[in-house]
């Protein structure tokens, strides 16, 4: 088992706390099948792959990938970049990832952590620059929060020293509430994937829950066009014979 990065500095009142879904991503990315797939797709002789996680939250998943690049990719020289809509998550995750990378003993073999930017999904990412995309979305079927308050709630209020309770609740809602079928945010993200993934080698990992109807989602991805693939590569939380959480790998085979 590879070590889980420390998130002890993160305030979980306003940043999503690592939970079963986060750990399923760690387990899946470091599984023997996925590390074999990734090592073969990103051979040492090719340019360093750029890993983007959207909605990093505490940063535990991105930090895990950054600190365990050698085990996952068979190479250490990967780049990691994150985004989150919550500015407090950006600050927290930045610390999580840089600490995890610094804790690596081999100075010469550290991966390169770029930054966490505060943004909406992958809207600020240069087209076709992402090699590995990771997304643990707000997937719970629950009403979306009212975004009109976002600018006010995304910083410590002026003249105050800390966030309000309403503000914290709003910021946490952003991390889990996914609207109808829990798919409203995920669908917006899926739309951007063909534009951000690098041509020829880009691959995405998206977490879904059973209420998101993973089989339908996978079929929709395959319908993007010739070569697009979507397969479940990790599951957890068996409940009455069906899996509660799925990790879907999305990639394109060039014809």
């Amino acid at each position: 088992m590879l070590p889980t990065p420390s998130t002890s500095h993160v305030c979980f009142d306003r940043v999503y706390e690592p939970a079963e879904d986060s750990y399923l991503l760690l387990d899946t990315l470091s599984s023997s099948t996925e590390s074999a797939f990734l090592s073969e797709r990103f051979l040492q002789s090719t340019a360093p792959p750029l890993v983007l996680e959207v909605g990093v939250g505490s940063g535990v998943v991105l930090a895990f990938v950054a600190a365990n690049a050698r085990s996952i990719f068979g190479r250490h020289d990967i780049l990691t970049l994150g985004t989150d809509i919550n500015s407090f998550a950006c600050q927290a995750a930045s610390q999580t990832v840089s600490t995890a990378v610094k804790d690596e003993e081999q100075h010469e073999e550290r991966s390169i952590f770029l930054d966490i930017v505060n943004g909406d999904l992958a809207s600020s990412i240069r087209p076709h620059s992402i090699d590995v995309f990771i997304f643990n979305p707000p997937y719970v079927p629950a009403e979306l929060p009212d975004f009109s308050r976002h600018t006010d709630y995304n910083a410590v209020p002026e003249g105050k020293t800390k966030t309000s309770f309403e503000q914290d609740s709003y910021l946490l809602e952003l991390s889990y509430a996914g609207g109808e079928d829990g798919m409203v945010v995920t669908n917006r993200m899926l739309e951007q994937i063909p534009d951000i993934l690098s041509k020829g080698r880009g691959v995405g990992y998206v977490l879904l829950c059973a209420q998101n109807k993973p089989d339908i989602v996978k079929q929709q991805i395959r319908d993007w066009g010739s070569g697009w693939q979507a397969e479940t590569v990790g599951t957890s939380g068996k409940k009455a014979g069906w899996e509660k959480l799925h990790i879907v790998r999305i990639w394109k085979n060039d014809d």
């Binding site: 600020s124 009109s148 600018t151």
Partner: peptide
């Protein structure tokens, strides 16, 4: 113009630009 504060760039757009 996207602001950078405390080393974090903010790419969130005001509602009318989204």
């Amino acid at each position: 113009e996207y602001a950078v504060k405390e080393g974090v760039a903010n790419f969130l757009l005001p509602g009318h630009l989204v």
